Simulated scan of single mutants.
Amino acid sequence: MTDIATRTWDGMTIPVAGTYLLDQAHKRIGFLSRHMMVSPVRGEFAEATAQIFVAEDPLLSSVTATIASASITTGSLDRDTHLKSADFLDVERYPTLEYRSTGIKWQGNEDPIFQWARLRSHRLGGRGRSPIVPPQSDGTPGRFVLTGELMVKGITRAVDLEVNFGGARTDPYGQNIFGFSATAEINREDYGLLWNVMLESGGVLVGKTVQIEIAGEAIHQA
C-alpha cells in the first residue's frame, strides 16, 4: 500500500498508479429502460467484479469487468425471471456479461460549455468587449470517455462510457480509494435481445434503448 493516495496530472488530482479492485460494498451496476413507451423501469446487477489498472500515464489506464447475468434484479420476481430466460439474457447459457476498455480520453477541455464560451468570447471580443469565460475546474473531479467493448450473450459491441471521476483519498481504514460514476446508452437488439410485444395503441411493450448507470469506489491493491 502506498502512503500517498493522490498525485497531480495536468492540473488534476488523480489516484496513484497501480491496480485497483471494485469495492463490493460501494458499487451499483444499474440500467434503465422504458415500459410501454411511457414509464422508466430501473434495475441492477447485484454481482460484479472489476479490475482497474491506473497507469503512470493515466491515458494508458485500462478496465476489465465481469457481471453475473443471473444477479439481475428489478424489484419484480416475475420480470426478473423473464429477463433471465432465453427471451433476454439466457443466463444458463451465458452466465456473465463482460466489459474491457480499449482506450481513454480526457474530456476536461472538450465540455460543450467551454466550447460555447470560447466561441462567444471570440464574438464578443470582435465588438470590443471583454471576453467572459467560465473558470476552469480546480482539477479535483474530472470527466473522461472510456472506449471499450461490451459482450452480452456472446455478442460483442463497442460501448463508450462517459466517466465522471469523483476524487481520490485515503479512507479511515488506511486504504487508497477513488470514486467514479459512468453512463452509456445501448440498443439491446444489438445483442440479440429481441423479444417484444407490439401495442395496439402503437409502440412496443419494452423499449429498445437501455441506459447504463454505474457508480462505485475502487480500492488500491498492495
Rank of each mutant, 00 (worst) to 15 (best):
T170K: 14
T2H: 08
E213N: 07
K208Y: 01
F45Y: 10
F144V: 09
L89Q: 06
Q211M: 05
T81F: 03
R123S: 00
A46D: 11
W9L: 00
R188M: 14
S33Y: 07
S130M: 12
V54Q: 14
S62P: 10
Q51M: 11
E185L: 12
Q221V: 08
V210N: 06
G166E: 15
T74P: 02
G216R: 10
T2F: 02
G125H: 06
V210F: 05
E92P: 00
T96N: 06
A50Y: 00
V145D: 12
D190V: 04
S69K: 04
I4N: 07
R188V: 12
T13A: 14
V41S: 09
Q115Y: 06
S71H: 02
P95E: 06
S137D: 14
Q115V: 13
G126F: 02
E44P: 00
R28H: 08
T19M: 08
G75C: 02
P95H: 03
Q24F: 02
G166N: 15
P141R: 05
G103T: 04
P134I: 07
S76G: 01
E162P: 01
T209M: 11
S61L: 04
H220F: 13
P172H: 07
A25W: 03
T183G: 15
F178D: 12
A48V: 04
V63D: 10
F165W: 07
V54L: 13
A158D: 11
K27S: 03
T96R: 03
M1W: 09
V38T: 11
Q175M: 15
N196D: 15
D90Y: 00
A117P: 01
P58H: 10
V16F: 04
W106S: 08
V197D: 15
L83T: 02
R188Y: 11
D190H: 04
P112M: 15
L59K: 07
A17P: 01
Q24N: 11
I72A: 04
G30V: 12
L150I: 02
G166Q: 15
E149W: 00
P135S: 09
A158N: 09
I212Q: 08
A215F: 02
K27C: 03
S137R: 06
W195Y: 13
L119N: 11
T73I: 06
R118E: 15
S76T: 08
S76V: 09
T73W: 05
G125L: 06
G18C: 13
S181W: 01
A17S: 10
M12R: 14
L124D: 11
S61I: 08
G18Q: 14
P58M: 13
L32N: 08
K84D: 02
